[in-house]
Design a protein around this nucleic acid. Sequence first.
DNA 1: CCAAAAGTGTTCCGTCTACACCCATGG
DNA 2: CCATGGGTGTAGACGGAACACTTTTGG
Lengths: 225, 225
Amino acid sequence: METLALPPQATQVGLAVDVAAFAMHGGELQVLLVQRGELPHARAWALPGGFVHPGEDLHEAALRELRTETSVTLEPRHLEQFYTFGAPGRDPRGRIVSVAHLAVLAHGAVDVTGGGHTLGAGWFPAHRPPALAFDHAAILTRALGRLRVRLEYAHLALEFLSDTFTLPELQRVHEAILDRPLDKRNFRKRLLAQGLLVASGERRSGVGRPAQLYRRAKGARAAAL
Amino acid sequence: METLALPPQATQVGLAVDVAAFAMHGGELQVLLVQRGELPHARAWALPGGFVHPGEDLHEAALRELRTETSVTLEPRHLEQFYTFGAPGRDPRGRIVSVAHLAVLAHGAVDVTGGGHTLGAGWFPAHRPPALAFDHAAILTRALGRLRVRLEYAHLALEFLSDTFTLPELQRVHEAILDRPLDKRNFRKRLLAQGLLVASGERRSGVGRPAQLYRRAKGARAAAL
DNA sequence: CCAAAAGTGTTCCGTCTACACCCATGG
DNA sequence: CCATGGGTGTAGACGGAACACTTTTGG
């Protein structure tokens, strides 16, 4: 593969990935953060991320960083890059370009501890995060914007839930991402009209009337891009 | 700025930008291509692009490549990155990651010749391009998809035209990007209802009834992101 | 007067919004 | 029986799609 040399003007830069990983927890949209163990920004919270290995695809690198910097073991239900941050000076160590990714984790995958060279990991409210290292606040803001857009196009909300779920649960996912309340009747009408959901048995929640359980209809795949 | 060294696991890669630059020409949507003068893919057509210089922002690099690889002198009316292509093996020279950009050039800026180390430059039909070097066909396809999306959100179609323009001209821009015909009455109604356009004098085209000239209303700015 | 392109309205239909009450269960 | 949350329908507003003829100019 190395049949030709890189031309002399080829700037060598550090290539990194950062991952904004979201999940629902306690009825709220949460983002996964790690506490840095090294300079720069030691002890500051940051998005999980790190350098891409030689020969490794960007997508693989994002998956690896998610697994090694946190104790998240489940595969993300959704992973896509959404923007590349490359301003000179965004990292004091030199020219580092980061391809930012958006990940969605299913409901179960919420217990995390740190891993690798981080001091810890945890979930934080996505719309009110703590102070973040580097330009990660800007990355998170943009990730939330992309998440909102994807909610309309693809059926990304389903990826936050287990295989079976209730409509009120699904509505809470939409509300958490859009950060505003939705009308119950209109929400149900719209979702059921799409024909992507099929009912199954019942379920009792702690209190109140039990909710109908739904499942994604087979043959319903997200419309990508 | 170089207060800290890059950690040893920091993969060094070549960082490039590629630009899919569009303009209207002859009532058709065209994309700007250059003919490569060097290996690999010598004499093949490709999107203009090249390596980012040290200390240079991605945006600046895209502008520079556009200016030096082609004779386009006007500033693009719109320039944004839309995807980063980083698969190992996409470039036989080694690991090269390219941040792909979408550019829109105004109506006048259509005379191009090659520059730098290219053999030439020219405009080609965007929906039926010639064979392209590297993975540039995939980049172009994705650029067209982004252009379609932007047409709805922002008011990107105006950037293809001069400051004053007629509604039929604007309609042709929309039709060229969407690659399908639009109804004249519905198009006018929709556009004028948005209140972003104001009328001015008249103009005679070669044949037929002269069309009203319009101008973008002041205080109308594209909704970004 | 003819060719060519600009300009103009109405109807229909589907989708979104607002809005209030009854139902099933557990304690 | 009461507290809690699940489930249901309708009317009005709005926006997009379909559709054909008249107007203005140059040659």
